[in-house]
């Protein structure tokens, strides 16, 4: 009897990503655990990448596709820089990502993307994508294995859903960092595919002071040029069980 065999080109590597836009900053975070089934492949596999000094991309889903996709986006941004002698604006990166994802409509990159950074008006911005390129600008977004755990918490704490009275439209940076940390410790506690390490990228608008980031544990600056937007990375430990 003839046997039907098939090759499955996709797998799911767990993990969660999250981005929040502030008035003049953006935070993009992801855990660093990479899993396949019940196995941990590595405890440190970054899912969040600095694209330019004002754009950071988080990719979650099938890790191989994610890495390849980031590689291709970075290549397109480099070509842009050589052609125009400047970094691509954030909203243009968002549209670029859409066309790159939709170009593979019938063999998609199996990844959820969240793009965070500073827009042309100097405001914090978050763009979220589905695997085939539908996208939307938002204030906050969680994606990945623990999306269902984190997103309703963010609805409550960022959008103040189900809360009465006056509320700020943008939260201060230390508060946002605290919410991101709480979201990931919570997700780590209840989701087996989330844990090991937390990597938070903070993008500050041009001319914005960085006093709030002084003395933050595990912080390091990864900005490439002066007098422009600044990018910082904060590394934290998450539970490893």
């Amino acid at each position: 009897m003839a046997q039907q065999r098939s090759f499955n080109p996709y797998t799911e590597n767990g993990g969660t990503i999250l981005a929040i836009a502030g008035a003049d900053f953006a935070v993009v975070a992801g855990d660093t655990r990479q899993t396949e089934g019940y196995s941990i492949q590595t405890r440190y596999a970054p899912k969040v990448f600095r694209l330019t000094d004002k754009a950071v991309l988080a990719v979650n889903g099938f890790a191989a596709d994610g890495n390849m996709f980031v590689k291709k986006v970075k290549q397109r941004l480099e070509w842009y820089k050589h052609a125009h002698s400047k970094d691509m604006p954030l909203q243009s990166i968002a549209r670029l990502i859409q066309t790159m994802l939709y170009a593979k409509r019938f063999f998609p990159y199996y990844v959820y993307n969240i793009l965070g950074g500073i827009d042309e008006q100097g405001k914090g911005a978050v763009y979220s994508f589905d695997p085939v390129g539908s996208y939307e600008r938002e204030t906050c977004r969680a994606a990945g294995a623990a999306q269902s755990l984190v997103q309703p918490f963010l609805d409550n704490q960022i959008y103040f859903k189900n809360q009465t009275g006056e509320h700020p439209t943008h939260l201060p940076l230390p508060h946002v960092l605290q919410l991101v940390t709480d979201s990931f410790t919570g997700a780590t506690e209840r989701h087996i595919e989330v844990g090991d390490g937390l990597e938070m990228f903070v993008i500050l608008a041009r001319g914005r002071g960085s006093q709030e980031l002084e003395g933050v544990a595990g912080i390091r600056e990864v900005t490439t040029s002066d007098e422009r937007e600044r990018v910082f990375v904060i590394n934290r430990d998450l539970k490893r069980d």
Partner: peptide, 26 residues
């Protein structure tokens, strides 16, 4: 799964009855 996520973020030990009401409602 959503309840786990929110509860993990909002709950803390030794809440008084009125605080517990707010926490569980939210």
């Amino acid at each position: 799964s959503k309840l786990f996520g929110v509860a993990e973020g909002l709950w803390e030990p030794d809440l008084e009855p009125d605080e517990l009401f707010e926490t569980i409602s939210q």
